[in-house]
């Protein structure tokens, strides 16, 4: 491949370090979920992180702590960290054809240090795929008619992604080989992108019919079903893929709660007869995320309009949070 002359290139032939790990210790390093099945990781959401942009938001999931018997320099799992900037609405270039609607363009990029394997600088197919899914989710809530002949750019930088599987399974081929296009981690990344982008759109003051929140749920084969083929499975909200040796199916939704609408749905794996239940669980995760979002939004509103009566402006805020 030709070297990219617009970037500073490293020497050819570098490789990530290989580690010597005692195979008897390997399973002791495996992280396992220590939350309840319906419990989400704690979410931190803040708007206004990029003052020069018209709107911005930052989302972070709490890094889980595992009580592992053996310590290693290899991190057991990662925690999502996403920054989003919204530029616009701004006039479309003169050469662009007339458009009576707001032209929404989404752009998702992983930082090179976001995942265990160093990412390239050029957007790959996964990132373009995420951008398309995100655009779908947002198009359902933005009132495009109010901004004719205008465009808005939603730019997302993923500073830390979600892992597709535990690193120990990478060599041994564990965690269902379904994750060919993007893998399971992409589901959580998309949910985070939807939530953070919706918060940034609100911060930018772009008219939306509602907030849209991302939620993920997954079906796991029950640990004791391996021998007796009872097909007993459990559903968990907000799955962290490294915590589960096997994932049967996962679903991510972009859910607009006050309209009870799903603006984006992505289902992966074999959910069988439990599909509907899986989607309902993903919606439940999105509703739980919404509580955090409403809180962050009322903080944003307070900082922008200190005089305003936020409580009456957000009539649903208390209801959602208490529920």
């Amino acid at each position: 491949m030709m070297a990219d002359r617009r970037r500073i290139n490293g020497p050819a032939g570098t490789a990530p370090p290989s580690y010597a790990i005692n195979t008897s210790d390997l399973e002791k390093l495996r992280p396992s979920r220590n939350r309840r099945p319906e419990e989400l990781r704690k979410i931190f959401l803040k708007t206004g992180v990029t003052p020069p942009a018209s709107g911005s938001a930052y989302l972070e999931l709490q890094s889980p702590t595992y009580d592992l018997p053996v310590k290693s320099v290899l991190p057991p799992a990662s925690a999502l960290k996403i920054s989003c900037a919204v530029h616009g609405p701004k006039p479309l270039p003169r050469s662009a054809p007339y458009n009576p609607q707001l032209v929404l363009s989404t752009h998702v990029k992983f930082a090179p240090f976001a995942t265990r394997h160093r990412r390239g600088y050029i957007r790959d197919s996964t990132e373009r795929d995420l951008g398309a899914h995100l655009e779908n989710a947002l198009r359902g809530i933005v009132i495009g008619k109010r901004w004719p002949k205008s465009g808005v750019d939603v730019i997302i930088t993923i500073l830390e992604g979600e892992e597709d599987r535990w690193w120990g399974d990478e060599v041994s081929g564990g965690t269902t080989g379904l994750g060919v296009v993007g893998g399971w981690g992409m589901m959580n990344v998309l949910a985070g992108c939807i939530t953070v982008a919706s918060a940034a759109l609100v911060d930018a003051g772009i008219d939306c019919v509602d907030l849209v929140c991302g939620g993920v749920a997954a079906i796991l084969p029950s640990p004791d079903s391996k021998d007796n083929q009872t097909q007993q499975s459990i559903t968990v909200l907000d799955p962290s893929p490294p915590e589960h040796p096997e994932i049967q199916a996962a679903c991510v939704v972009g859910y607009s709660a006050s309209r009870d609408e799903i603006t984006e749905l992505w289902l992966k794996g074999d959910s069988g007869a439990a599909t509907e239940q899986l989607i309902d669980s993903a919606v439940a995760a999105a509703v739980a995320t919404r509580a955090v979002m409403v809180e962050a939004m009322s903080e944003t509103a307070l900082s922008k309009f200190p005089e305003a009566d936020i409580k009456s402006a957000f009539p649903s805020a208390d209801a959602v949070m208490s529920g």
């Binding site: 500073i8 490293g10 990029t50 900037a85 701004k90 990029k109 600088y121 730019i155």
Partner: peptide
């Protein structure tokens, strides 16, 4: 003399006019 320190800067999206992609 070998490129063993490789800094790269990404600034797209950090301010209006800095186009991403």
């Amino acid at each position: 003399a070998l490129p063993i320190v490789v800094p790269n800067i990404e600034i797209a999206g950090a301010a209006p006019g800095l186009v991403a992609g």
